[in-house]
Design a protein around this nucleic acid. Sequence first.
DNA 1: TCGGCTGTTAGTAA
DNA 2: GTTACTAACAGCCG
Length: 274
Amino acid sequence: MPELPEVETIKNTLKRFVIDKTITDVTVFWPNIIKRPDDAEQFKDLLHGQSIRDIHRKGKFLLFELDDAILVSHLRMEGKYSVHPSGEPVKKHTHVIFTFNSGEELRYNDVRKFGTMHLFNKGEERLGKPLNQLGPDPFDEAFTVDYFYQKLKKTDRQIKSVLLDQTVVAGLGNIYVDETLFKAKIHPLRKARQLKKREVQAIREAAISTLREAVAQGGTTIRSYVNSQGDMGMFQQELFVYGQENEPCKECGRPITKMKVGGRGTHVCVSCQK
DNA sequence: TCGGCTGTTAGTAA
DNA sequence: GTTACTAACAGCCG
């Protein structure tokens, strides 16, 4: 589900509910979510007594900053965080509960159980998986045209697949890649290494502006995404190609085509995108 | 009823 | 080393 704009929105809404709350207990119903440490009991012990001081985002990852630790969380397709009074009935697909000293709980819910949590000592989170291979955030100043152009030049893959590669740039997923390529007027099947520098520049700018606008709209809700207050995003109203199969292109009027690229459903205006 | 699809990515095979 | 495919899981749609 969530790509950069959704994770950013979740971070911002969640902060209001959890900052300076102290974890007094952790309950893990589906241990496979916990990837580090490998033992869920140890995970629980390390979190006991820790307070949430801040929440950060890197690509699609949420980073919960605790007193002595960083909890790195990826929501994958359907992960959600929400805060509830302790007495409230627990919903189906809730897999981890962080109990606070405030009489509330932070609950992690994930229909498909794909999400992951990695716990690190503070300062060590960038050294191991999953953050050690992550490319720059699109909003980071390290995401320069030169960096991007060099990366694209040394791969044989199609541009769409490269944009989905989180080691190249971190935060784009299937929706925003399709939207970015439409905005840049580039066909998703183009070989990355054959793109001209001005095309690479156009993709970079399209990605940044698309993501910025989507953050402003609170993300995109296609089926299940809601932020940590339960609000839907609004960016689905601004989509040009994603989910617009057979609809007229908002630029040229010709129908949007759906195809497969790298195994992913891909939406393209074959008239606008070359 | 069942196969195919879904906002992701780690692991494996070629 | 690079790239392509699949599995992890559940639900929805035709």
